[in-house]
Structure formats: C-alpha cells, structure tokens
C-alpha cells in the first residue's frame, strides 16, 4: 500500500481546481502551438494591411495617430481572444459532453467557469503581448509600457468582454449551432474600443469603451494606475464586474432554461 493509498482520497480545494484548470490550458498551449501561432500570424497580417494600407491612403495622418491604433489593436486582440475562447470553449464543452461534468462538480459551475475564463485571459495576454511587440517593431513606435498598470487596466477592460463571452456561451447552450453568428460580435468590439468615451460620457458604461480610454492614457501618455482619478478606476471596476455578472447571469439563466427544456448537452 502506497502513501497516497494509506491516507485515502483527499478532498480537493479551490487551489487544486485552479491548478488543474490552468495546467490544462498550459498543456494545450504548449502542446498545440499551431492555434496560437496561427492567431498571431493572422492578427499581424491584418495589422500590416491596416498600417501599410492606411499609410498609403492617409499618409502622415495615420503615422501621427499610430500609437492610438496600436493600443486599440492590442486591446482588440485581447478582447477577441477572451470573448471567442470563452464562448467557443463553452460551445465545445457542450459538444464534447464535458459541460455536464462541470455542471455537476461539487465546486459548482461558477468557480470552474471563472477559472477557465481566467486561464483564457492569461493565454490571451501572452499572445497579445507578442502581437504588441511585433506591432511596435513593424511601426518603429515607442509606447509607455508600465506593465502593472497595463495588466490591471487591460484585465478589467476585458472582464466585461468575458461577461459577453459567458452570455454568448449560454445562448450556445440553449440554441446550439449559432456560434458563427455570435462570433460576428467581435467586430462590434472595434466600435466599442474606438468609441469617443471622453466626449460622450454615457459611452463609458459600455464594455471596453472606458477601459480603452484609460489604456490609451496609460500606454501613450504614461499615466500610472494611481494617477487616474479614483472615480475613473471605480467606474472601470464597476463596468467590469457589472458586465461579467450580467453575462454570467445570462449563462446561468440559459443553462436553467436548457435544463427545463431538456437540451443541456444535446448537441
């Protein structure tokens, strides 16, 4: 009888759960790099088209605003990565029959889903950072890279997108094969990121808009987290928590309805 046998099965805590979820994400990242590399190449291709095409058409005007474009594109890749990974992940879990096992876990589905979301955000940050570095090299641009502030502001910004991802995932659980339609929402992020939140205050309550504004000020103007007005930071947190909560509520309501209709897991 081995040591682990002698002591018997031990109860897993949230630490074990976090480790398992993050480790799985890590394994997939390192074992199947083609997805990540493909995403990076495609993102840089589109950025190249945007940058060189724009410079041909707009000339100096584009070059003058290139920092803003880079920051916006960085946030967009982060948002798309977080949104699609969480919504597609839920869709895949439904298809594979693993969603039910996560729904039945004694931890409850919420912690598992949030940890999976966090794992996706970490992975997305890694990929987007590579894209950011490549964009800076391509354009020869310099940005203020206060990592701590960037991570906090960008993370809070894309939490609202994670909420949208949960909502989309919930709708996928209910209506199944509509993932492609929901992916169109990603292009709406461009509008949200470029929304003139400074001039039109109510836009700040939309996902990404306020976060995009703060991230621009961080990366272009070098503003640190503690230098922002507390109200701005509070609003960023409120929008993040609000949309995440709303998205999760939609997911919960959708899965409840799917259970009533008997379609949870039926793909």
């Amino acid at each position: 009888m081995s040591a682990d046998e002698a002591s018997g099965p031990q109860k897993a805590g949230y630490y074990h759960l976090a480790r398992a979820v993050l480790y799985r994400e890590f394994l997939l990242f390192v074992r199947y790099p083609a997805n990540a590399i493909g995403g990076i190449v495609i993102s840089l291709f589109f950025f190249g088209v945007l940058f060189y095409g724009g410079r041909m058409l707009a000339g100096q005007a584009l070059t003058d605003s290139i920092e803003g474009i880079i920051v916006g594109y960085f946030l967009w890749t982060l948002s798309v990565g977080a949104y699609s990974s969480i919504s597609n992940d839920i869709g895949s879990e439904v298809q594979w029959g693993t969603l039910e096992r996560h729904v039945m876990t004694p931890f409850g589905f919420a912690p598992v889903a949030l940890l999976k979301g966090a794992a996706k955000v970490v992975r997305t940050f890694l990929i987007s950072s590579i894209i950011l570095g490549a964009m800076l090299l391509i354009t020869g641009t310099r940005l203020e890279l206060h990592v701590g502030t960037i991570v906090v502001v960008a993370s809070l910004s894309i939490l609202s997108v994670l909420g949208l991802g949960f909502a989309a995932g919930g709708i996928t659980v209910l209506y199944k094969r509509i993932g492609n339609w929901l992916n169109l929402l990603q292009f709406g992020f461009v509008v949200l990121i470029s929304a003139p939140a400074l001039g039109v205050p109510w836009l700040k309550v939309l996902p990404l808009a306020h976060g995009s504004d703060l991230l621009q000020r961080t990366m272009v103007d070098g503003v640190r987290l503690w230098e922002f007005p507390p109200a701005d930071v509070a609003l960023l947190v409120a929008v993040a928590v609000g949309y995440l909560g709303l998205g999760y509520a939609v997911f919960q309501a959708s899965t409840r309805r799917a259970r009533r209709l008997g379609v949870l897991g039926d793909y």
Binding site: S2, D4, E5, S7, G8, P9, Q10, K11, A12, G13, H16, L17, R19, A20, R24, R101, H102, T105, P106, F107, V112
Partner: peptide, 17 residues
C-alpha cells in the same frame, strides 16, 4: 487527474487508484 479534481478529489491522493 483533471476529472478527479473536478469531482472534488486531490488527484495526487488517488494516483494508485
């Protein structure tokens, strides 16, 4: 290991199993 954890058991404690 993953599903042992999801079902609430520390996977290191059930390696023999």
């Amino acid at each position: 290991r993953y599903f042992a954890t999801v079902s609430g058991v520390d996977p290191d404690s059930v390696t023999d199993r």
